[in-house]
Design a protein around this nucleic acid. Structure first.
Length: 367
RNA sequence: GCUGAGGUGGCGGAGCGGUCAAACGCACGAGACUGUAAAUCUCGCGUCCGAAAGGGCUACUCAGGUUCGAAUCCUGACCUCAGCA
């Protein structure tokens, strides 16, 4: 049994859904109108970055990140747990993980600590439709002992997060229908027993859904479907199943088959800026078949052979780029490094993911 | 015509006697990208053999020359640019 809708401030959003990453309150290269043109129903914003860059005062003044961006669709806020990996472990910023929370040292004289409670508090300031608990990202290279520590910390932080969530709901006297969703994140790396244990312990705390946490790619570079399965199998009835940072189009199809219904990923937007566009192997949107192998391929506009190509990037797409412009024009925009290239490519890739979820909904409805 | 400067890989541009198949940039080609550190990064780019390590061949306008050795020095030719006639 899976959920059919994601309740947002502006209405019910049918599932499954792909929310692009607007980490710092912008889907890179696009404004809110562009985003609407791709029929994107929701976005993911990031607690860590927005907390540092905007803070409580700005959020209070605007009454939430949606108003700030003038975005009417759904919004999920990520906790900042991923930044432990992406920012600290990659060495971009100094920091460490302690039981209290995550300590970041953005500069010599600056120390900020993000606790599970702080993360939840700020997410309430962001006024998002779903909040995510701060988790301790299991290093993909972690051995079992290390993975176990991150699982225990994740469970402990989840308890604190849930308590803080309930405290704020009570303080604000929010009716049940006014509460945002709260998502627990399952860690444990490649160890299925740890994934199972983590899921079961989180279920005891009680959430609206589970996120597939950690790094979803194996050493061989393949999507870790086993962990996705374990989490799905140990998820209570009617939970949201959220593939955090998932993924490639094929991964979405595979996960949707397991019951996953929310996805976000930087791939379509980052790939677009890097000149990699997704193209369905079909002559029209109706003819797209996401169940066949190799249902899409990549198109790189920066190749010389396309410099005078009058055809659109994809015949099976109704985005701004494909309905109005040629491959040659896009190639030109990339070559002269105009930002419009990134914009049109991002619009296209998001529409590709949008169509993908539309097709997934059709496929699930037929079941 | 005279005077001066100069001719280097697809292009711009270093090098000014050995460590040069030639820095660096552009262009071109291949690859990566997964809860955004990254509109970014990696690799290749004369030619032939090799999986690679490595090796062969041909190259710095052309023709000679000096030298153990030349893109680098000398002579001549051709060409380009600037100034003056």
């Amino acid at each position: 049994m899976t959920r059919k809708f994601f309740k947002s401030r502006s209405g019910n959003i049918p599932l499954p859904v792909f929310f692009p990453d607007a980490t710092r309150a912008v889907v890179r290269c696009l404004d809110t109108s562009d985003l609407e043109s791709t029929k994107t129903s929701g976005i993911l914003v990031n607690t860590f970055h927005l907390w540092r860059e905007l803070g409580e005062d700005v959020m209070e003044k605007f009454g939430g990140i949606g108003n700030f961006m003038n975005w009417k669709g759904g919004i999920i806020s990520d906790s900042g747990g991923f930044q432990v990996m992406s920012v600290i472990k990659s060495g971009v910023m100094k920091g460490k993980i302690i039981d209290e929370g995550v300590v970041f040292y953005p500069s010599k004289n600056e120390k900020v600590i993000l606790t599970p409670e702080k993360s939840i508090q700020f997410q309430f300031e962001l006024k998002t439709d779903m909040v995510i608990v701060l988790d301790d990202f299991t290093d993909p290279k972690a051995g079992k002992a290390e993975a176990k520590i991150s699982v225990e910390r994740t469970i402990s932080w989840a308890k604190r997060s849930k308590a803080e969530f309930e405290r704020i709901c009570k303080e604000r006297t929010l009716a049940k229908s006014e509460k945002p969703y709260i998502l627990g994140v399952v860690q444990g790396g490649k160890f299925q027993d740890l994934r199972k244990y983590c899921a079961r312990e989180l279920a005891k705390i009680g959430f609206d859904g589970f996120g597939y946490g950690g790094w979803p790619i194996t050493d061989e570079g393949k999507f870790d479907l086993d962990s996705a399965k374990t989490i799905a199998q140990n998820s209570p009835e009617n939970y949201f199943l959220y593939g955090l940072g998932v993924g490639k189009p094929d991964d979405l199809v595979a996960c949707a088959g397991l019951g996953y219904n929310i996805f976000d990923c930087v791939l379509p937007t980052r790939d677009a800026r890097h000149g990699r566009l997704y193209v369905y192997d079909a002559e029209s949107i109706d003819e797209i078949n996401i169940m066949k192998p190799n249902f899409y391929s990549f198109y790189n506009p920066e190749k010389q052979k396309y410099f005078s190509d009058k055809t659109p990037v994809s015949a099976a797409c109704d985005c701004l780029l494909c309905t109005k412009y040629s491959k040659a024009y896009l190639a030109h925009l990339f070559r002269i490094e105009d930002f419009t290239a990134g914009r049109l490519a991002t619009i296209h890739n998001l529409r590709f993911y949008g169509i993908l979820t539309e097709k997934l909904r059709e496929a699930l409805d037929r079941k």
